[in-house]
């Protein structure tokens, strides 16, 4: 009997304690979020904007559904853009009118934790204490790490010929190779008029830097080529690599004066950075950033008046690199 009573009392006490705890939890004392006024109009506006966003997003799906529709891209962009715009407006309405926007104050975090810093240092020191030959182990560790890194990056050597740079000097031009136009038709001396022509090597790829040439006809009397190149321009026809020696763009502009002598002299111009070359003077740079003249190709007029290369270009084609002046161009 007594034991039963004790048990009942204990159960009751437990229950009461539990209830009390629950009640305590329910009646959390102060608020965390500051009370906001709310706004019925704000709610209406936010709901309307959200519905508008839904409508626009649905319109996107509908527009997408059409198979042949003029201005479909514009309509799709408009629908999706407006859907996001309405959503943005709804969210900003909520942020401005419906929720508490009271400024809170907070502490900046501790600028530093000296105790922890000290502890970390201590852990490191005490852990390393048993090791007596630190230098030996550091050296061995560095060797292992360094060698492994080297091994890990070695496969990257397969990416390209990192050491063999001979390809930079190679061009498809050699003595006797014909000049053809973009469609592979041979170019004859009489095809070269007052304009500006692009020529390629006959029977070779057109898609490498050494291939394309610019060919122009100048007044032979106006040519001022170096002594060793005097026979490189028969009838005043000169040929240069079309690839700019500054940044590898195609030199595709030709400035040709119509009113001598008021206009500047003829020039080949690259449209990327406006390097300007003088075709009458072995493509010397007369303006712009290029550091070398365009390589020149000796031109020969064959028996049927077709244009041929009299040799390779006067130097490697394309932009400069540290060894660009080391070696001549080769085939």
């Amino acid at each position: 009997m007594r034991r039963l009573r004790d048990l009942l009392v204990a159960v009751l006490a437990l229950l009461l304690a539990r209830l009390a705890r629950r009640r305590g939890r329910r009646t959390r004392s102060e608020r965390i979020v500051a009370p906001a006024n709310g706004s019925t109009r704000g709610e209406t506006a936010a709901a309307a904007l959200l519905f508008a966003a839904a409508l626009c997003a649905a319109a996107f799906v509908v527009v997408y559904g059409f198979d042949r529709l003029g201005d479909q891209t514009q309509l799709l962009g408009l629908a999706l853009g407006l859907a996001f715009a309405f959503l943005a407006a709804a969210l900003i309405t909520i942020g401005k009118l419906l929720v508490a926007v009271e400024e809170q104050e907070d502490e900046y975090p501790e600028p530093a934790h000296p105790d922890d810093q000290e502890a970390i240092d201590q852990i490191a020191r005490e852990s390393a204490a048993p090791i007596t030959r630190k230098k030996l182990l550091t050296t061995a560790g560095a060797a292992a790490g360094g060698a492994l890194v080297a091994a890990a990056i070695t496969p990257a050597l397969s990416l390209g010929p990192w050491t063999d740079t001979s390809s930079l000097y190679r061009t498809p031009w050699r003595r006797g190779r014909g000049l053809v136009d973009g469609d592979g038709r041979p170019l004859a001396a009489d095809d070269i008029g007052e304009s500006f022509y692009t020529a390629y090597p006959e029977g070779a790829s057109h898609d490498e830097l050494g291939a394309p040439l610019v060919v122009v006809r100048l007044d032979p009397a106006a040519l001022e080529l170096p002594a060793e190149r005097v026979d490189w321009a028969p009838e005043g026809i000169v040929a240069y690599s079309k690839i700019c020696t500054h940044a590898a763009c195609a030199v595709s502009l030709y400035r040709k004066p119509k009113f001598r002598p008021t206009q500047p002299r003829p020039a080949l111009v690259c449209p990327c950075h406006y390097s300007t070359f003088d075709p009458a003077r072995a493509a010397a740079v007369i303006f712009g950033p290029a550091g070398r003249p365009l390589p020149q190709l000796p031109v020969v007029i064959g028996p049927a008046r077709e244009l041929q290369a009299g040799g390779n270009l006067s130097g490697p084609v394309g932009p400069s690199f540290s060894g660009v002046r080391d070696r001549p161009a080769n085939s």
């Binding site: 010929p161 590898a248 394309g318």
Partner: peptide
């Protein structure tokens, strides 16, 4: 040459 694998 390493990055491009061949002249441009």
């Amino acid at each position: 040459l390493g990055i491009w694998g061949a002249p441009y």
